[in-house]
Design a binder for these strands. Structure first.
Lengths: 155, 155
DNA sequence: CTAAAATCGTAACCTTAGGTGACTACATAA
DNA sequence: TTATGTAGTCACCTAAGGTTACGATTTTAG
């Protein structure tokens, strides 16, 4: 096949931090979506987790969710539309502030979240098993420190 | 500003593996591009490193580079065009196979690569300093194991 | 209490990053 | 020497998100 993405099998060079982060990040995302599909949640794309993982179980306004996810409310609005169509969340106008749209999980959505936690948990457990619990904890902590160190960088 | 991407400052929930990976990965990418800009290499975007880091110092064909980077030659061709315009690489037709385009670094490009290694190195050193050398080594190794574990996953 | 400023959500359009299919030019094996 | 395969390229499509501009409401200052 002429146009397909090339597999880079057989080409290994010493991978640096950036390459390893990228690869691990992609792999985890793919695994999450796969896991949810396997549990019968169709139509989900990995970007949806940006909303799902930033929405309190009790619900929140669109803007609040966008702020938490670190993206614009416009982008979040589109994710919301899709998740509404998929019946995982639903909206209502806020009583207190009638500009506000309140986002909340549907029953199906709560179910999804349960499974979503379970899937993420399973992945973390598999990794922890493979490398050892201590090493996994170190990984989590090292990732946060890496982010902080790089975000601090001014020049 | 109304429409800008929300900063998620002040919102901390227990971040899972996925979220930490994403954040660290973004932060490192941004830091690399910033570092190169600071050293006077303008016009570079982080995606360019997909080509740069897959091109041997001795040069290679477009298709070979695409294969190494794990992307299509069409996509790689566009990156090549941009890097040619920026004078970091140049092309020549291969003598042996006149279909082939040989990509090679220009003098400026080789210079860029030197700095690029230096920038990545500096970032890694900063992280290693912050968390300790051992922990940093553990991070690198744990990232690869995470990727492998997740890529293996079948269901 | 009202006028100005800020905030919530939406719509239209732009950008980045990459993939797909179809095609030309050349290379190679039957 | 014809069939088949490979290197690049062109035109178009998709995913994800940002930017500008706007209408509808609060909120705040005078």
């Amino acid at each position: 096949m002429n146009t397909k993405r090339a597999s880079n099998k057989g080409y290994q060079r010493a991978a640096n931090l950036r390459q390893r982060l990228l690869r691990a990040s992609r792999a985890v995302n793919v695994a999450i979506v796969k896991g949810l599909h396997a549990r019968g949640f169709e139509g989900l794309r990995s970007t949806h987790t940006a909303l799902l993982s930033s929405l309190d179980l009790g619900g929140a306004s669109l803007t609040a969710v966008a702020r938490r996810a670190g993206m614009t409310k416009q982008a979040m609005g589109r994710l919301a539309d899709e998740l509404i169509r998929l019946k995982y969340i639903e909206t209502s106008r806020s009583e207190a502030d009638r500009r506000e749209v309140n986002l909340a999980f549907t029953k199906t959505g709560l179910d999804l979240m349960q499974h979503s936690f379970a899937v993420m948990d399973a992945i973390e457990k598999r990794c922890a098993n493979r490398m050892g619990k201590d090493k996994f904890q170190t990984l989590l902590s090292a990732l946060s420190e890496t982010a902080l160190e790089c975000e601090d960088e001014q020049a």
